[in-house]
């Protein structure tokens, strides 16, 4: 998430396209996480099968593809900027949260899928899976917002 460079005063033109893809991927990633978290949290008390399905689809068709776009473009822009072997903390924060994040995304997607499958059979069934997914997605969302802060403010 090297979004800070998006409106950085100076930057070679050759960085623009990979940066566009990276920023777009990161924005879609956080936005689809917001959708998934909201749907799963609203479904928490009501047990709405429709909202659980929406949360699951947001994770599967929104969060996962966005993560791939963000991560692939991060690799591309980091190689353009010569930051692949950098020890800068904001780079480390970005790669660490991205790479651990995919594990959390996969677990949350499986849990939401199980919740959606069970809630389709009987309203309210599979609530534990849905709640587990909601917690994971919410924690990940907070983590990625901190990552955006690190990318923007670039602590050494």
């Amino acid at each position: 998430m090297m979004a800070a460079a998006a409106i950085s005063p100076t930057r070679p033109d050759s960085w623009d396209f990979p940066l566009l893809l990276h920023v777009l991927g990161a924005m879609l990633l956080v936005s689809t996480l917001i959708l998934a978290a909201a749907a799963l949290l609203f479904a928490w008390r009501a047990g709405s099968a429709a909202l659980v399905r929406l949360g699951f689809r947001a994770l599967l068709f929104g969060v996962l593809p966005s993560w791939i776009l963000m991560r692939a473009a991060a690799e591309w822009i980091a190689s353009r900027e010569g930051l692949m072997d950098s020890n800068l903390s904001w780079i480390s924060i970005g790669f660490t949260t991205a790479d651990t994040g995919i594990v959390v995304i996969l677990i949350a997607t499986v849990l939401a899928g199980l919740a959606a499958r069970r809630s389709g059979r009987a309203e309210g069934s599979g609530a534990g899976f849905g709640r587990g997914s909601a917690v994971l997605v919410s924690l990940l969302l907070i983590t990625y917002l901190v990552t955006v802060w690190a990318m923007a403010t670039k602590p050494v």
Binding site: A3, A4, A6, I7, M27, L28, V30, S31, T32, I34, L35, A38, G62, L145, V148, W149, A152, T153
Partner: peptide, 18 residues
């Protein structure tokens, strides 16, 4: 300022996604 500007842009994109 950049962080707050990016955060606001994220809010716009989140609306578009929903």
């Amino acid at each position: 300022l950049l962080f707050l500007h990016l955060l606001a842009a994220l809010a716009l994109v989140a609306t578009v996604v929903i």
